[in-house]
Amino acid sequence: MNILHIDSAITGDASVSRLLTAEIVAKLKAGRRDATVTYRDLAEGVPAIDNDWFHAVRQSPETPTADQQALIDVSDRFLAEVKDADVLVIGLPIYNFTLTAQLKNWFDQIARAGISFRYTAEGPEGLMKGKRAIVAYAAAGTPIGSELDFASGYIRHMLGFIGITDVEFVPADGLAFDRDAGLARARTALDKIAA
């Protein structure tokens, strides 16, 4: 089993989503000698897509310049990690009611027509099928699934868009009001997730 472990919180050791992703990965690895983990810390930076990225990556020039090739290589690396994974463990800290900019940038980098999805007469089809995603949702005051939560639905949609429809959430919300209770709820959800 190949695990892609993704964190995006900017709060370092104080991050609940980082704590939870580590616990999820440990549970998945327990008793599995074949498990491998690729770790990606998006807080270290994920380039936002822009006009240069569009011309390099989306338009795929036959002879890209060195700068264009560098942009293509970054996107290709992110995509290769997803392709190689059986399970994605994603930390989803909530800032201002939504996901981090770095996590949004990561989705922009991997949503590529003809590689992670394709357009068909029936609509878009995800090409990263057969994978599982476990998302550690951590929020100070945004309850998961509430009208204030603009992140969990987006994550589920984007993963489904690229073909990953087996998506589970480990939610730790209400942390600003009762951190211990929020963590207890998350760990109860984690206990129910099959390794």
Rank of each mutant, 00 (worst) to 15 (best):
F161M: 15
G12M: 10
G31H: 08
V25N: 07
S15A: 10
K29F: 03
L28T: 06
R32M: 10
A113L: 04
V89Q: 01
E23I: 00
K192A: 15
I134N: 14
A14I: 05
I144D: 01
W106T: 01
A186E: 12
G174L: 14
R179N: 04
L79A: 00
R58A: 11
A14E: 13
A113R: 06
L148S: 08
T36S: 12
V57W: 01
F161G: 04
P143S: 08
T98M: 14
A111E: 04
A22M: 13
Q69G: 02
V57K: 09
D7K: 04
E122P: 09
L4N: 00
P93T: 10
R118K: 12
H5E: 15
W106L: 14
I110P: 08
V82S: 12
G182T: 14
T165G: 06
A172R: 03
G145T: 05
A176N: 13
Q69S: 10
R156K: 06
I94F: 04
D76V: 10
V167Y: 01
V25H: 06
L92D: 09
E81T: 08
T188D: 11
S17N: 03
Q102R: 04
M158N: 10
V46K: 07
T63I: 02
E125H: 02
A70N: 04
V16K: 07
P171Q: 13
E147V: 11
L92Y: 08
L127Y: 03
K131F: 08
V87S: 05
E122I: 02
P64T: 01
F107S: 06
K131E: 08
D84P: 01
L103M: 07
G160R: 03
I134K: 06
I134L: 02
S15L: 11
H5I: 01
A136F: 13
A172I: 08
D7A: 15
A176H: 09
L19V: 05
Y137M: 08
V46F: 06
R118W: 01
K129Y: 05
A30R: 12
I10P: 07
I94A: 00
A176K: 13
L127T: 02
I6W: 02
V74C: 11
L28I: 06
A30K: 04
A56E: 04
M1C: 05
E23K: 14
F169E: 12
T100H: 09
F177R: 15
L159Y: 08
V46G: 06
D76M: 04
E122Q: 15
T100V: 10
P61A: 09
A70I: 13
A133D: 13
E44K: 14
D191H: 06
E44G: 09
K27I: 12
I193A: 12
T98S: 14
S116G: 10
V135D: 07
P93Y: 02
G91M: 03
P64H: 11
T36G: 08
F150L: 04
T11P: 00
D191K: 15
R118Q: 14
A181N: 11
A194C: 09
G91A: 03
R40V: 12
L99A: 14
I72P: 04
I90R: 00
Y119I: 11
S146C: 08
A26E: 15
D86K: 00
D166Q: 12
I115N: 02
F177I: 12
D178K: 02
I3N: 05
Q68C: 01
E81D: 13
D73V: 07
G145M: 03
R58I: 13
E168R: 10
A111W: 01
W106R: 03
F177L: 06
L148T: 05
D34G: 10
W106K: 05
